[in-house]
């Protein structure tokens, strides 16, 4: 029993760590898509964020400067997306795909040119990374049965970005549903013409939304390179941007369900890791690939009709043109 409890806590602990970048990216997608701009480029923005964070942290030695540059780089890419989709009314999917390809190529080219390590950045030392924070009394209560482990392992001992990601969920909800900006953002994703006739600039609102998406993707990237890992590795996002997009759709573009979707996907990932090499009686070696594919399978199957209709923002993907 104790063993099971320990391994459950450890799995959940890993779940939180794996869910964090998904959460940042999914919330980024939430802001962008709620304003009516499809964001396929989450993956690319995370990747440039990760690269900028690792590079700057390793050169300057400051993890915070790394985070800042991750945000700057990611926002630049977000603005590129905005320029194509909002100012020039381009196809949002095409622009997003272009951003992913650009990010994937650019990070490797710059990495090779600057560090000559096959596209990776030098390994970061611990003071160039976000390290675990021990919550007060975590040491003292660690030995209390059940509760102690819950507090010291699961709640304590994460880096600051993990706590930030989870705090962003209620914050995003509050911004979307309780502020003027949120009301306008939701309106522009549903009916931009109504927003325009109300005397509000559609373009400015959408630009603000994609910038927020850029900032959040910057956090996600910095987390990957300077918290979860200790260097940038080529294509290290490995589809997590798309996973976040799946979580966003799965959650029907709402903040709280996004939290649960990200936790579910993170949990499946954590289980897959724990089951690696484990032989279950009667089944044999667990096929890890199957579990890793589960989030995607779930999204496809559930979207196919098991969780009801996904109701995307009505104006999503449609460039706003004043018509005659």
């Amino acid at each position: 029993m104790q063993d099971f409890w320990v391994s459950l806590i450890l799995t959940l602990d890993a779940t939180l760590r794996v869910s964090t970048p998904l959460l940042f990216a999914a919330l980024a997608g939430l802001f962008s898509e709620r304003s009516g701009i499809v964001d396929i480029g989450l993956e690319g923005k995370m990747l440039v964020g990760a690269f900028a964070a690792a590079t700057v942290a390793s050169v300057s030695g400051s993890v915070w400067l790394g985070l800042l540059m991750a945000i700057v780089a990611s926002v630049c890419f977000a603005l590129l997306h905005g320029f194509a989709c909002i100012t020039h009314r381009g196809n949002q999917v095409v622009s997003g795909v272009a951003i992913n390809i650009l990010a994937s190529g650019l990070t490797v080219v710059l990495g090779l040119a600057w560090f000559h390590q096959g596209g990776s950045t030098p390994a970061l030392t611990n003071d160039q990374r976000f390290t675990a924070i021990t919550l007060p009394f975590a040491e003292q209560v660690a030995d209390v049965p059940f509760i102690g482990l819950l507090y010291s392992e699961l709640l304590s001992g994460h880096n600051i970005l993990v706590y930030l990601a989870f705090a962003l969920v209620p914050l995003s909800w509050w911004v979307l549903y309780r502020t003027r900006f949120g009301l306008r953002l939701r309106a522009v994703g549903e009916n931009p013409k109504a927003v325009d006739t109300a005397g509000i600039s559609v373009a400015s609102l959408r630009y603000r939304a994609v910038i927020i998406a850029g900032v959040l993707c910057g956090f996600a990237g910095a987390y990957l390179a300077t918290a979860q890992n200790a260097q940038f590795i080529r294509d290290m996002t490995a589809g997590q941007g798309f996973m976040a997009l799946a979580a966003l759709i799965f959650a029907k573009w709402r903040p709280w369900p996004i939290l649960f979707a990200c936790l579910l996907f993170g949990f499946l990932d954590a289980v897959a890791v724990r089951l690696q090499g484990v032989t279950l009686p009667g089944i044999g070696l667990v096929p890890v690939q199957l579990i890793e594919a589960l989030p995607y399978l779930l999204t496809v199957i559930l979207l196919a009709g098991f969780i009801g209709k996904a109701n995307p923002p009505k104006a999503i993907g449609v460039p706003y043109v004043k018509e005659r």
């Binding site: 309780r178 502020t179 003027r180 900006f181 949120g182 009301l183 306008r184 309106a187 109504a194 927003v195 109300a198 005397g199 509000i200």
Partner: peptide, 13 residues
């Protein structure tokens, strides 16, 4: 919400 849109009367709804 429709009537408030664009004339919210403050940053918080």
């Amino acid at each position: 919400e429709n009537i408030m849109l664009g004339a919210e009367g403050g940053a918080l709804l």
